[in-house]
């Protein structure tokens, strides 16, 4: 069996590499020329509309479906090659809307998948405890709520101490507390060096949590990088919220008149200023020079949702 653990000289090399990956179903180009590098220990987000090709790319990364052309390697090994068992033993996968076996208990479910993965049966109890299902271990899955099933699916993905996690819409059906606990586990795993590739429709949820992300539309990667990189690539405007007395609205307008400002809107107790990123510091300096008339100042960076729609539209 091939050892796919990283060697010291490879530690900084991408752990997952996709090159020229295409998947065509007749005239439909589900994935169309994807190049992607995901580094070890990274929490990587993959976002896109329904049908953008995320799940197909996921399945190709797992070796579930062959690529029409191109190749995907995990730590140098082809996912569909001779070392596929070693690759898959190093991977944990949580599919979108995970379906488990209703007639098994939570514990039996994990025991079944642990055997398939070659993981120790002793891992099953701690895995259940980690996702908060220890009390429900001996209940049949048919009695589990949607959120509990999702957590059990996540526990399944953690079996065998995987070095890479592929999580497709992992927080579907989870309540806010479970979502928080889920991301706490991901943070802990990242500190242990686990690489996670995650898709989510809830952009606000992953915005502050991923190291880097890629935006997919129509089977192509439109952009990739940190959230900040993408903001800069998209060159979306910033919004300032300047709290001043109503009498000072004109003063603010005059102070900013010589700068490159896209828009100024007077609201009840504040002025909203829209400007390009390059004007950001000049706006702050101009406002600072207003002799304490500015009572409060908030800068709103473009959200991931703004960035996403900027690229996908």
């Amino acid at each position: 069996m091939a050892d796919i653990s990283p060697t010291p000289d490879k530690a900084d090399a991408p752990l997952i590499v996709a090159r020229g990956v295409r998947k065509f179903y007749g005239p439909i180009h589900a994935v169309d020329g994807v190049d992607l590098d995901i580094r070890a220990g990274e929490l990587f987000g993959l976002i896109g509309h329904n049908g953008a090709g995320k799940s197909t790319l996921f399945k190709m990364m797992l070796g579930l479906i062959p690529a029409t052309s191109g190749e995907i390697r995990i730590n140098g090994a082809l996912v569909t090659g001779r070392d596929f068992r070693a690759v898959r033993r190093s991977v944990g996968y949580l599919p979108e809307n995970v379906v488990l076996y209703d007639n098994l208990t939570g514990l039996e479910t994990l025991q079944f998948f642990a055997r398939l993965k070659g993981a120790s049966p002793a891992e099953t109890g701690p895995a259940l405890e980690r996702v908060g299902l220890a009390q429900a271990a001996r209940r049949r899955v048919r009695e589990y709520s949607k959120g509990m099933r999702q957590r059990l699916g996540f526990a399944q993905a953690l079996l065998g101490k995987p070095r890479i996690l592929f999580l497709d819409e992992p927080t579907t059906g989870l309540d806010p507390e479970a979502i928080r606990s889920f991301y706490a586990i991901l943070r802990q795993l990242r500190s242990e060096g686990v690489t996670t590739v995650i898709t989510s429709h809830i952009l606000a949820e992953i915005q502050e949590r991923v190291d880097r992300l890629a935006i997919m539309t129509a089977g192509k990667i439109q952009a990739s990088g940190t959230v900040q990189d993408l903001r800069e690539q998209m060159d979306l405007p910033l919004w300032f919220s300047v709290r001043v007395a109503k009498a000072d609205f004109e003063t603010v307008r005059n102070a900013l008149a010589h700068l490159q400002i896209d828009a100024i809107e007077a609201m009840d107790d504040h002025v909203k200023v829209k400007c390009r990123r390059e004007a950001k510091m000049a706006v702050i300096e101009a406002l600072a020079g207003l002799d304490g008339r500015v009572r409060d100042l908030t800068v709103r960076e473009p959200s991931l949702e703004d960035v996403f729609f900027g690229f996908s539209d």
Binding site: L64, F84, A86, R88, R89, P95, N97, V99, L116, K117
Partner: peptide, 13 residues
């Protein structure tokens, strides 16, 4: 049809 085949096939099998 149930959607459990992908998970099974993602195992080392």
């Amino acid at each position: 049809e149930r959607g459990s085949l992908d998970l099974l096939l993602s195992m080392p099998i």
